[in-house]
């Protein structure tokens, strides 16, 4: 026997017959995770590689080829001034993703800082901050976003700021709740008893426990921020129509949809939905994975 340390060899000559069990739930989850990963990889590749490699002008107007349905030459068709929609979608996704990622990161940094302060300090700081969060939350995001955007000239960064400033609230809540729950754990008591300062407890023991949650919130916020950008742009308040983003594409396609031309709406729409689902799929799996206690609970 080679695996003398592990195999149950004593008493049996032929060795044990091992059986494993794999549940269906497990395999569908694997499929979901893999599909999501592939989709995200494809999105990232398209966004990063297509513009520099293809070297085509997404703004190239060709009025002789306007509103062509999907064909081999234009797989997604063309828009009302004859621009190739596939190219426009890829560029649009690029802008939307940029806005989404930038807004999600900014919102998460603000939210984590505010939530951690409120949770770790407690007392009146917590009360004041959380009232403020409640007040902001009671105003609809979109309305507040429009208000913020109105303060700036149209462009990419006002949209980022508008989305970030309206979306740190939920992260702040998540982080605060998590800090509060960690703060009552005996291991924080142990740190306090070991002479750790308030700062050390927050930075060394509370924040590392909260960061996975904040990171998850950030990832889940990317599609949300993309949707907000699209919504703002669709309303004509976000990016200038000339800049291709998924929102502006859908917005400019509004007219043609009524005329029976579905492709200028469908493809940008799909470009919003598919990465959203893929990110949600991966984030769900991540949420199940990142808890290190799970394994030992099952085993010992």
């Amino acid at each position: 026997m080679t695996d003398a340390g592990a195999g149950p060899t004593a008493g049996t000559q032929d060795g044990p017959v091992w059986r494993s069990r794999r549940t269906d739930r497990q395999s569908t989850r694997t499929v979901r995770v893999r599909t999501s990963a592939v989709l995200i990889a494809a999105t990232a590749l398209a966004v990063l590689l297509v513009p520099p490699v293809v070297q085509l002008d997404q703004q190239a107007v060709d009025l002789s080829a306007k509103l062509l349905p999907p064909s081999w030459e234009h797989p997604f068709g063309t828009d009302d001034v004859g621009r190739d929609l596939l190219l426009r979608c890829v560029y649009g996704l690029r802008v939307s993703l940029l806005v989404g990622v930038a807004a999600a990161l900014t919102a998460t940094v603000i939210g984590t800082a505010v939530g951690a302060c409120a949770g770790a300090l407690g007392g009146w700081v917590d009360r004041v901050v959380m009232r403020l969060v409640d007040t902001f939350s009671s105003v609809p995001h979109l309305l507040l976003g429009i208000f913020i955007i109105a303060l700036f000239r149209p462009g990419v960064w006002p949209v980022v700021i508008s989305v970030a400033l309206t979306h740190w609230l939920s992260t702040a809540r998540i982080v605060r709740a998590e800090v509060l729950s960690l703060r009552s754990r005996p291991y924080i008591d142990a740190a306090v008893s070991g002479g750790a300062s308030r700062w050390r407890v927050t930075v060394r023991h509370l924040l590392p426990g909260v960061l996975p949650h904040a990171a998850l919130a950030a990832v889940l916020m990317i599609p949300h921020a993309m949707w907000h950008e699209s919504a703002l742009s669709f309303l004509g308040l976000g990016l200038p129509t000339r800049t291709a983003s998924l929102g502006t594409l859908v917005q400019s396609a509004r007219g043609s949809l009524l005329a029976g031309q579905w492709w200028p709406t469908l493809f940008p729409g799909l470009f919003i939905i598919v990465p959203t689902l893929a990110i949600a799929g991966l984030a769900g799996a991540w949420r199940e994975r990142f808890n290190p206690r799970r394994r030992s609970e099952l085993m010992l």
Binding site: P8, P16, W18, R19, S20, R21, L298, M299, L300
Partner: peptide, 25 residues
């Protein structure tokens, strides 16, 4: 003592082992 495998035995009887487990016997 804790970690000696008692609970794993119980989980095996109930078919509640995680996916990376194999049983024999």
């Amino acid at each position: 003592e804790s970690g000696c495998g008692k609970s794993v035995l119980a989980s095996a009887l109930l078919g509640l082992l995680p996916a990376n487990a194999q049983t024999a016997g």
